[in-house]
Design a protein around this nucleic acid. Sequence first.
DNA 1: TTATTTTTGCCATTATTTGACAAGCCAATA
DNA 2: TATTGGCTTGTCAAATAATGGCAAAAATAA
Lengths: 101, 101
Amino acid sequence: MNQFGEQIKQLREQKGLLQRQVANQLDMDTPMLSKIERGERNAKREQVTMLSKIFNVPEDDLLSLWLADKVYDMVKDEDVALKAMEVAEEELKTKKRKKNK
Amino acid sequence: MNQFGEQIKQLREQKGLLQRQVANQLDMDTPMLSKIERGERNAKREQVTMLSKIFNVPEDDLLSLWLADKVYDMVKDEDVALKAMEVAEEELKTKKRKKNK
DNA sequence: TTATTTTTGCCATTATTTGACAAGCCAATA
DNA sequence: TATTGGCTTGTCAAATAATGGCAAAAATAA
C-alpha cells in the first residue's frame, strides 16, 4: 500500500464508483487500476491528472502523493535516505532560486 | 553536472589519479567514468561503495550525494517537488519508527 | 448458489538502461 | 607543427525493466 493508492481508492469509494467505471475513464482495465490502488503499479503522470478531474480534487494534492511514493520507493532501503533527501531539497531550493532569478 | 559526479571528480584529482586508473578498479572504461563524473550516467550502487574505498572516504557521504542526485532528477520538473519530498520524509520517519518498534 | 467486483499471476510487447567501441577534442610538449 | 596523453562525444546492440492486457482465482454481495 502507498499513499497515492490509498487516496484514490478512498475517493473512488466515497463517490460510490466501481473500479470498472474509473478504469474506463482512464482507458485501462480493472486489474490495472486494482494494482495502482494497491501500489503494485505506478500510475503515469497524465493519469494522475485525469484522476484529479474524475474525483474533482486539486491536482497538486494527488500529484504530491504520487511523487512522494516514487521518491519513497527510491530511498527506502538506504540508511542515508533522510540525509539524501535533505541534500536533494537543498539542491532543489538552490536551482529554483536561479530559475526565478 | 550533479553533486556526486563533481565530488568524485574532485576526489580523483585530489589523489592525483587518472580516469583510466579509477575506471580500471571499477571495471569500466574511461568514457563511462567520464560520463559518471559529468552526471550523464549514473553509477550503480556497488560502484559507489567501491569509490568510497578507492578514495578512502566514508561510504555514507558518497551514498548521500548519489541518492540525492537520483531523487533530484525524479522531482525536478514538478511544481510540487518540495511538498512531495516533505510527504516522503514523513512516510520515511513513520515506517522507520515501526521498523525499530 | 449465482452474480458482481476485485485481485492474482502470467506473458508478450515496449521502453529504458547499460556497456562497449570508435572517433573527436584539447592541452602539453617534443 | 606533429605527436602524445587524457578526457569527451556519439552511436549502437544487448540486457534489464516497465507496461498493458488477458485469463482465472478469490472475495463480496445478492
